[in-house]
């Protein structure tokens, strides 16, 4: 049975290691920029719609409809 205690001990050691790495990472400023990536991913579509050929031809129509609907609603 002794190997169980050894392995549990090892498990706690490893888990502790992860915890230590995490605390160290936070304290040493690892996650200073934890905002930009979340915003950057939003800009893909904007680019797609302005650069993309088919998007340019069809999208304005959609937008017009949307605008028309909006103005109707208003």
């Amino acid at each position: 049975m002794s190997v169980i205690y050894f392995l549990i001990g090892l498990g706690i050691l490893v888990a502790g290691g992860f915890l230590f790495a995490f605390i160290w990472a936070v304290k040493s400023g690892q996650y200073d920029d934890d905002y930009t990536p979340s915003v950057r991913m939003l800009f893909d579509d904007y680019k797609d719609d302005s650069i993309n050929e088919p998007a340019q031809t069809t999208e304005p129509k959609v937008n017009n409809k949307e605008n028309a609907e909006k103005s109707n609603n208003n």
Partner: peptide, 26 residues
């Protein structure tokens, strides 16, 4: 009602070599 747009163009700068100052998680 639409037409399948198979391809979408995009552009981006090529990837730089990692900066030395970059932090571990990055």
């Amino acid at each position: 009602s639409g037409k399948f747009a198979r391809f979408e163009d995009d552009q981006a700068p090529a990837l730089e070599k990692p900066a030395v100052t970059e932090k571990i998680h990055r």
